[in-house]
Simulated scan of single mutants.
Amino acid sequence: MLDIEFQKSPKGKWTTPPFDPRFPNQNQTRNCYQNFLDYHRCVKRMNRRGKSTQPCEYYFRVFHSLCPKSWVQRWTEQIQGGTFAGKI
């Protein structure tokens, strides 16, 4: 679930994230964080229901496109360590 480094993008299938009306401004920091949370919430729910996590791939691609790698690594470490501030 949290091994983001092992989830690689399919070649040639990365696109720019579409416009999200919740984040109309140029600063996309909140958009990055929200999609990171949405991905992990989606994976958690799908695993709990015993379903495929394929629908969660959208959030994964968006936050990987918007977020700096250092943020993603730090947040992932915080989740694993139990110190992440967001509610997943």
Score class of each variant (00 low, 15 high):
residue 64 H to S: 09
residue 54 Q to Y: 13
residue 69 K to F: 06
residue 38 D to Q: 07
residue 64 H to R: 15
residue 46 M to L: 13
residue 40 H to Q: 02
residue 75 W to Q: 02
residue 8 K to R: 11
residue 82 G to V: 00
residue 50 G to H: 01
residue 16 T to A: 14
residue 61 R to N: 08
residue 33 Y to L: 12
residue 45 R to H: 14
residue 24 P to K: 01
residue 27 N to K: 09
residue 8 K to P: 09
residue 70 S to D: 13
residue 83 T to L: 05
residue 82 G to C: 03
residue 71 W to M: 05
residue 69 K to E: 11
residue 53 T to S: 06
residue 26 Q to K: 15
residue 46 M to Y: 13
residue 9 S to H: 13
residue 28 Q to T: 02
residue 58 Y to T: 06
residue 21 P to L: 06
residue 61 R to C: 08
residue 10 P to V: 09
residue 18 P to L: 08
residue 76 T to E: 03
residue 62 V to W: 02
residue 29 T to H: 05
residue 9 S to N: 09
residue 21 P to E: 03
residue 52 S to N: 03
residue 31 N to R: 12
residue 88 I to M: 12
residue 25 N to D: 13
residue 26 Q to R: 14
residue 66 L to Y: 03
residue 81 G to C: 10
residue 76 T to V: 08
residue 85 A to K: 10
residue 19 F to M: 08
residue 33 Y to C: 11
residue 71 W to N: 09
residue 20 D to L: 01
residue 27 N to S: 06
residue 63 F to P: 02
residue 88 I to K: 11
residue 20 D to E: 02
residue 53 T to L: 04
residue 42 C to Y: 04
residue 49 R to E: 15
residue 56 C to P: 00
residue 45 R to F: 09
residue 79 I to V: 11
residue 14 W to P: 14
residue 11 K to Q: 07
residue 20 D to C: 00
residue 60 F to Q: 05
residue 37 L to E: 09
residue 77 E to D: 14
residue 55 P to V: 02
residue 63 F to L: 04
residue 28 Q to K: 07
residue 87 K to Y: 06
residue 65 S to Y: 05
residue 49 R to P: 11
residue 77 E to T: 14
residue 10 P to I: 10
residue 4 I to P: 01
residue 24 P to W: 02
residue 8 K to S: 06
residue 60 F to A: 04
residue 59 Y to P: 00
residue 64 H to G: 09
residue 88 I to A: 10
residue 2 L to I: 14
residue 9 S to F: 09
residue 23 F to P: 01
residue 68 P to A: 05
residue 21 P to H: 06
residue 27 N to Q: 06
residue 72 V to Y: 01
residue 51 K to I: 12
